[in-house]
Computed example of a mutant assay.
Amino acid sequence: MTITLEKARELLAKAVETQGKGFVYNPSKTGLCYYQPLSVERALSPEDPRVKTGCLVGTALKIHGRMDLLDFLGSVTSMHREDKGQGGDLMDEEAADYFQMAQTHQDGGSTWGKALEAAEELAESLIKARSVEGGEAR
């Protein structure tokens, strides 16, 4: 089932609930985000939050049941493009943009709550643009 913007919003909200809005996945603002938890050997330290959980988008994909994608190395935009190039239908463009917004904020050291807020602002803009394109703007 293709992840639409609406489904992405649901999945990301559930992913945030797993660790809480105040959780910071990348406090050092360095290194990569990983879709699944890091082993202690690969982490900066045993206290590295990336040992506790995968990144926000990885957690959302796991909730969606897409465990096959958790080893992917690259941005969610790259994941989307690669999947689409192979004829897949993992997510639509809006969902990819939404997840990318959250991933960018998370990787910059934001809390998961702030990353969700940024993605939600984008979602509202995308929905508004849809309305204007469809002649539904008021």
Rank of each mutant, 00 (worst) to 15 (best):
109 G>N: 00
95 A>I: 07
60 A>P: 04
86 Q>V: 05
48 D>C: 13
26 N>I: 12
136 E>Q: 15
57 V>G: 01
31 G>N: 13
90 L>Y: 05
123 A>P: 07
113 G>Q: 07
63 I>H: 07
76 V>T: 15
80 H>S: 04
102 A>R: 03
3 I>M: 04
32 L>Q: 15
60 A>C: 11
135 G>K: 09
116 L>H: 03
53 T>G: 01
66 R>W: 05
82 E>M: 13
63 I>F: 00
111 T>V: 11
68 D>P: 03
116 L>D: 08
54 G>K: 09
39 S>A: 14
112 W>F: 03
3 I>Q: 04
116 L>M: 11
103 Q>N: 09
110 S>Q: 04
88 G>Y: 01
126 L>W: 10
80 H>T: 01
41 E>G: 01
105 H>D: 06
41 E>Q: 12
133 E>P: 08
71 D>Q: 10
68 D>G: 08
34 Y>C: 15
44 L>F: 11
43 A>Q: 14
64 H>G: 11
99 F>P: 01
91 M>K: 02
72 F>D: 07
109 G>E: 09
131 S>C: 02
121 E>N: 09
54 G>P: 04
25 Y>P: 10
71 D>G: 06
87 G>V: 06
32 L>D: 14
39 S>C: 11
96 A>W: 06
40 V>P: 04
117 E>V: 05
10 E>A: 03
34 Y>L: 04
65 G>R: 01
60 A>E: 11
110 S>Y: 04
58 G>E: 05
32 L>F: 06
73 L>W: 02
99 F>V: 07
100 Q>C: 03
88 G>L: 01
45 S>Y: 13
28 S>V: 15
132 V>N: 01
108 G>M: 15
41 E>R: 14
61 L>R: 07
132 V>G: 10
4 T>G: 03
133 E>R: 15
111 T>H: 07
52 K>S: 13
112 W>M: 06
119 A>R: 01
83 D>T: 03
138 R>V: 07
35 Y>M: 12
125 S>A: 15
23 F>N: 00
16 V>R: 02
95 A>T: 05
94 E>M: 10
33 C>H: 12
70 L>A: 05
47 E>W: 00
105 H>L: 13
126 L>T: 13
38 L>E: 14
28 S>I: 13
2 T>M: 03
59 T>L: 06
113 G>Y: 06
18 T>L: 10
96 A>E: 12
126 L>E: 06
